[in-house]
Simulated assay, not measured.
Amino acid sequence: MKKYYQLLLGLSAIFVGLLGISSRVRAVTRYVQSATPTIFVHGWGSGSHAEEKMANAARDAGVIKTIVRANVDKKGRVTFNRPIPANAVNPIVEVNLEDNKLSAYRDNYTQGYHHGGEYVKNVVLALEKQHHYKQINLVGHSMGNLEIINYINDNVNDKSLPQVAHLVVIAGHYNGLVGQSETQNAKINPKTGEPEKMDSVYRELLGLRQTFLKNTAVLNIYGDVGDGSHSDEDVPVNSAKSLKYLVSDRAKSYREVEIHGKNAQHSKLHNNSQVNRELIKFLWEESN
């Protein structure tokens, strides 16, 4: 009888182990298997290193295998460290901007972000020379978001460009930064996201309310360090949330995620495990 029970226990252990393997297989196969590339654009004064932990988190989760770097020089010329294989699944492109401070536009960032949008467009066009993609995903941090949204705004009528399937915004300062007295404390309408005061960068984007891409799903991630500033130390929460007024009425979907605590600090958001989980779920889980 004792041997019988030992046999049952052994079989049970094997069964549980098989269930665990099955569960892991399901965890891997739940992700979209697509050729669509995801382009990461870093923030002011930064580089592709700021995108590495997010990209590596996707690789470690089994979502992707291919990560390439696109270097953009100050004349807008794009070079890749290696080409994307033709059969790559969910490839990631880490953008590295040599002009990472838009140094020629320090007195006019409203125009500077348009220039940065041209850098994004050049990356997209360079990718098109490798493979003709029907759609792309875009992920930005800080200033990268303003370059991305200006790329979208400036090229909304160009049907030759691939469609933006998913847009992930991390710490986007659409209506000003901490220290910009005109808008940093601007209240927003809690239902619409409309700010009571708008800076010149924001006003430049108001046309998106009529033109933003209807097939683009948007995830807006921002931080509040909890020190009473209602910011991530650089970007006021309300400045980040003001994106809603620009895109939510037209976007395929719009969702906000607020990160709290010390790891919600501006430069830590692109090294944040919660951000990584939200990003992976939004971009690659099959339900999206």
Rank of each mutant, 00 (worst) to 15 (best):
K3Y: 13
Y4Q: 10
Q6A: 15
S12I: 14
V16P: 02
S22I: 14
R30C: 04
V32T: 13
Q33M: 06
P37H: 00
W44E: 04
S48I: 10
S48C: 10
E51V: 04
M54N: 11
A58I: 08
V63G: 00
T66A: 05
T66H: 08
V68D: 04
V68N: 04
R69T: 15
R69F: 04
V72G: 07
K74H: 03
R77W: 12
F80L: 08
R82N: 10
A86H: 13
V89Q: 05
N90I: 12
L97Q: 08
L102W: 03
D107C: 01
Y113N: 11
Y113G: 11
H115I: 13
A126P: 08
L127A: 01
E128K: 08
E128L: 07
H131K: 11
S142P: 04
L146Q: 11
L146C: 03
Y151F: 15
Y151N: 07
V156Y: 11
V156M: 00
N157M: 08
D158Y: 10
V164W: 06
A165I: 05
H166W: 11
L167S: 09
I170Q: 03
A171Q: 00
G172Y: 07
N175H: 07
G176Q: 01
V178T: 14
S181G: 04
A186L: 01
I188K: 12
P190Q: 15
P190E: 15
E194A: 15
E194L: 14
V201L: 02
Y202K: 03
L205M: 07
F212Q: 02
A217G: 15
A217N: 12
L219F: 12
N220W: 03
N220V: 02
Y222K: 00
Y222R: 00
G223K: 05
D224L: 02
S239M: 02
S242E: 03
L243F: 05
L246H: 04
E258V: 06
I259W: 00
H260I: 00
N263Y: 13
Q265A: 11
H270Q: 13
Q274A: 09
E278D: 13
K281R: 13
